[in-house]
Structures are given as C-alpha cells and as structure tokens.
Write a protein that binds this DNA or RNA. Structure first.
Length: 342
DNA sequence: CCCGTTTA
DNA sequence: TAAACGGGG
C-alpha cells in the first residue's frame, strides 16, 4: 500500500491545465520517478538504457513529460526528494520491497511461460529508484532549470510544509498523505495521463488533473485536521498498520462519535499504536527543512545536450528542442510571471 | 510516458 | 478522423 486510503470520503474536483496555468507545485519526486520507471518501457517491458546499460526511462520522462508541463502549461514544479525515512516507516518499506520482489519473480515466470501481457503487468511494479536514478534525475532537473530539494525525512511532508507556508500553490502527488501533513491543496494527476472523451467538438485528449482542498474537505466532514489524522491512524498509514475492518467510512463515524483516538473503545484503541502521538506527530509536526532556498536557475541547454546526448545517447535535436523550449519559457516567465515561485 | 506515422 | 503501431535510449 502506498499512502493513506481516504478516497471514499474526500471531495475532489476536476480541474484543467488551463486553470492551473502559471501555478507552482511541490512535486513528490519519488512518486514521479516511480511512475516513469513503471510506464516508460519498451514493448518487451524492459527499461530504456544508454549504451552502458544505465537506466534512462526516468530521464525520458523528465525531458518529455515534465518539460511539457513547464513549456506548454507553464506549471512551475519544485521536485522534493525523500530524505532519510522515519524509522516507523520501515515496515512499509519492507512490505513494498517484498511486493517488488514478488512481482520480479512473477515477471520472470511469465517470461518463461511466454505470457507477455502478464509479464508486462508485473514488470511495471519492479522499477527501483536507485541512487543512480536519483542522482541522474537531480542532475537533469538542475540542467533543465527546475528547482529541487531534498527533505529531511518524508518528501511529502516537506512538500506539504512548503505549500502550507505559501511558497508553492499546491502539492503535486497522488497520495492523500499530504493532506494529513497539512497541505492546503493537493493536485493529483499532474503527472499521469488522463483521457477525456468529448463526444462532439474537441478531438484532443486533454489531461484531467484534480484538486483536493483540505479546508473544504475538513468542513464537509465536520472534523479537524487532527481528527483526520486520527482517522488515518484507524485506516492505516505508512507509519502504522491501522485497524482490521475499519476503512474511511467507519473510521469517520468513530471519529465523529468519540472525537479523539484516546476515547475509542478499548477493542479498537488496542489495535492502534501504544504511543499515539509518536505517529500523530509525524503528520502534525514533521521534521522539515525550514530554510531552503529555491533560487531560480535558468536551463542550461548545452549542459542538457552534453549530458543526455553525449553521455546518454539521446537524439540531439530532440534534446535541443526541449532545451530551447525551456529557455524560451524561462525568458518569458522572467518578464511575465516574475519569480519561479510566487 | 509522448510523439510521429501508418492504417482502417 | 481516429485508432493502432513503432520508436525513443
């Protein structure tokens, strides 16, 4: 499981890239990179690599997808990388690794059985964000002039802090965790393709991002953020297991009835962590970098060509085209939008 | 994932 | 005109 499951009780509103024009986002880098490694693959399911065998799928994603958001839609992402994970997350991390290993085994079995559609479905779960993947992503982001920073712990917590502080307009993620971390607005599907079928008129396939507003949802649910965190503890988070048989709906009912986790009936309370505040504080008072500088850096077209074309065998004109687009976008934003961060 | 090209 | 296909590194 990745993130807290609150879908059934949260109000989401569809938006459009037009409506998001010029807005800034703190993007969860590890989720973004996982997406790229899951989806940017050759027909046989293998990752793209350079001639030396180094993975390049995430670089393709950053060069094509992310640059398009910046050039075409004028979004201003800031990538937030995970720092050292909180010790309470180790069970989740271990569980994820097991899922990956299982997928890897099943992938190899499917290949042996020549069941290629099954192989594909499994291999997308095996993408590993390695140190090299992270280093290359950071290097390319720098060359593209896209700011990034590394969190002390959870990237999602850092991104949420930046949004709550007003340094960015929203957190770009697919998980709801950032609401627990206090992000005022969560923007989902900034990074995935959504396809809209308009029966008449437009034939294009626009992406449909959606927004989740924390204050609106708390008001609709009639609970506080602290109570939403307690609700999440019932459902289960990356930092605790949750209570068997309790999902968002029943959790909400419990919170409404009892107010705080301490007041829950013993048979429920006993399934929650002994020290409730140890988990609550991860969400309510996370360790975050307070003094980060997001100084604006322009793109480095020559550096992009050097890195991607000469080192990683990308087609030169393709890289050059994106680099030029970024440079132009940047110079326009200098005059029209001011700083990268508003 | 995205894009350009081919195909129905 | 849109769905299918192939290639990207």
């Amino acid at each position: 499981m990745l993130g807290v499951l609150l879908t059934p009780i949260l109000k989401r509103e569809q938006t459009s890239f037009k409506a998001l024009y010029g807005k800034s986002f703190a993007v969860d880098a590890s989720i973004e990179l996982h997406q790229f490694l899951a989806l940017i693959r050759k027909p046989d399911g293998s990752l793209f690599t350079d001639p030396k065998g180094r993975v390049t799928s995430h670089l393709i994603g950053l060069l094509t997808r992310t640059s398009r958001l910046v050039i075409e839609y004028k979004l201003r992402p800031v990538f937030v990388f995970d720092g050292r994970p909180n010790p309470l997350k180790s069970a989740t991390i271990e569980a994820r690794r097991k899922v990956q290993q299982k997928a890897q085994t099943e992938y190899l079995q499917a290949i042996t059985a020549r069941d290629y559609s099954k192989a594909w479905s499994k291999v997308v779960m095996t993408g590993r964000v390695t140190g090299e993947v992270l280093a290359d992503a950071k290097k390319l982001l720098s060359l593209m002039g896209i700011p990034w920073l590394e969190a002390l712990e959870d990237g999602e917590a850092q991104a949420s802090f930046m949004a709550a502080k007003g340094d960015v307009w929203a957190v770009g993620s697919k998980d709801y965790d950032c609401l627990l971390f206090g992000a005022p607005i969560l923007a989902r599907y900034l990074t995935l393709t959504g396809r809209e079928y308009l029966p008449s008129k437009r034939t294009s396939r626009p992406l449909i991002p959606e927004l989740v507003n924390l204050a609106d949802n708390l008001q609709a649910l009639g609970i506080s953020r602290e109570q939403l965190v307690d609700l999440a503890l019932l459902v289960g988070t990356d930092f605790n297991e949750g209570v068997m048989g309790i999902g968002p709906k029943r959790g909400l009912a419990l919170i409404r009835k009892y107010g705080v986790a301490e007041e829950f009936p013993e048979e429920i309370r006993s399934h929650l962590p002994e020290n409730l505040d140890s988990v609550r504080n991860i969400f309510l008072h996370p360790r975050v970098l307070e003094n980060y500088s997001l100084k604006k850096r322009g793109p480095d077209p020559d550096g992009m060509v050097e890195f991607l074309s000469e080192e990683r065998a990308f087609k030169r004109d393709r890289v050059q085209k994106v680099a030029d687009g970024l440079a132009e976008s940047q110079s326009k934003s200098d005059s029209q939008l001011g700083q990268w961060l508003a």
